[in-house]
Nucleic acid binder design. Structure first.
Lengths: 208, 208
DNA sequence: TTAATATGTAGTAGTTTTACTACAAAAGTT
DNA sequence: AACTTTTGTAGTAAAACTACTACATATTAA
């Protein structure tokens, strides 16, 4: 009788997920939690086999949450269930100790699938992620954290861009030509595969 | 036998919502749509009494969506179901022709409540919104948060800017002149007292 | 130890964005 | 009703930014 804990701050999502699990997994016993605190409390009351964790909860420092949980419950299987893009965020969570990453955009079938896979003791990767994995395998470079691929000057300039500085301001501050800063900016965007500062910031937040 | 259409791009949410409605409303017949296109198609096939519409769908130009729907189906009741903060965005959608605004953070009870209220032909306001309404009534301008000072068009454009859209892209999407969008952007910045998108985003986050 | 990349820097020409101005229609005030 | 402010819209000139190119110096890989 698998014990599952569904964590999400939106009750509709918990409700839907719970029902899906109950209908598709024999004898599943599903509990719910709406916050990180509740989650820890619940986890300490009884043994859970699977934790389905929404990571875009307010107040949750996503990465640390995982660490804390892993520390106290080394055996629990963790499935990250997020509305963030899996291609961008998936890896990070897998690396950080999750056993699977599932985008909220995926359908019900995929949820069942992921849950069953994890309960079987395997890791779960969405089809898209598997594909990316293959690419990275041949392609070593892309596999490392993209922010670490920035040179220190680039990183430096990225920091200023994140603060909202304009290209001109940065050039002024660093006594460079505007065109130089612009080139850096372009290279940064290329390396991070983003096309504007906003995406850049999102990417950075994820990897830090 | 009320006909309800649930629109959301996340299948779990649709699933949960549908079940909630079916269980709480006698004889409810609930259909689902995952995109704006599907929504319009569905709406034209038969008569719906209530539309529960998720507004943070990718590609959905929120306000225009409402307009289009209202134009073709003047009688349908529309409940906006969003993960945006209701205090900031709620009244705006009401003004734009919705009959109710519900935050996804609210619980199942509130969903039932809202749906039933709308089906009865009344408008629905969450308790929080009612409160805000009262405050604004006595309190007019002074204490309101800067984001509420934006007109709905401005708000609309802000939304797109937050997503990282460029001025040109927005102009294209909304069929406006670039200069027009630029003017909006300038006015938004003025009202929020910021000087770039990054600060703007910070401000929005502050107030939500 | 070559050969291949990556990095730091910039010019030029072309795009995009902003500033400033404007104006009619709507909303709000007196 | 008359007056003021806000909103939705745009043109034009100026400012900011990007693309593409370039090149010398480091680094890295073969």
């Amino acid at each position: 009788m698998p014990n599952i804990l569904v964590v999400d701050d939106q009750e509709v999502v918990r409700y839907g997920t719970t029902l899906i699990l109950q209908k598709s997994i024999e004898d599943a016993h599903v509990s719910e939690a709406a916050s990180f605190e509740d989650t820890l409390k619940m986890l300490s009351t009884k043994k859970f086999d699977l934790l389905i964790l929404d990571i875009d909860m307010p107040g949750g420092n996503n990465h640390q949450m995982l660490d804390v949980i892993r520390l106290r419950h080394p055996d629990i299987r963790i499935l990250i269930f997020s509305s963030y893009d899996e291609q961008i965020f998936g890896w990070r969570y897998l690396e950080a100790g999750a056993d699977g990453f599932l985008s909220k955009k995926t359908g019900i079938e995929e949820i069942k699938n992921a849950a069953k896979t994890l309960l079987r003791g395997e890791k779960y990767l969405s089809p898209t992620l598997k594909q990316t994995l293959l690419n990275n395998f041949t392609n070593k470079k892309a596999a490392t954290n993209p922010i670490q691929r920035l040179s220190s000057r680039e990183n430096n300039i990225m920091q200023l861009l994140i603060k909202g500085s304009s290209v001109a301001e940065i050039a002024e501050k660093l006594s460079l030509q505007i065109s130089t800063v612009s080139t850096y900016k372009k290279r940064i965007f290329e390396k991070l595969q983003v096309s504007n500062v906003i995406e850049m910031i999102e990417k950075v937040q994820l990897y830090s």
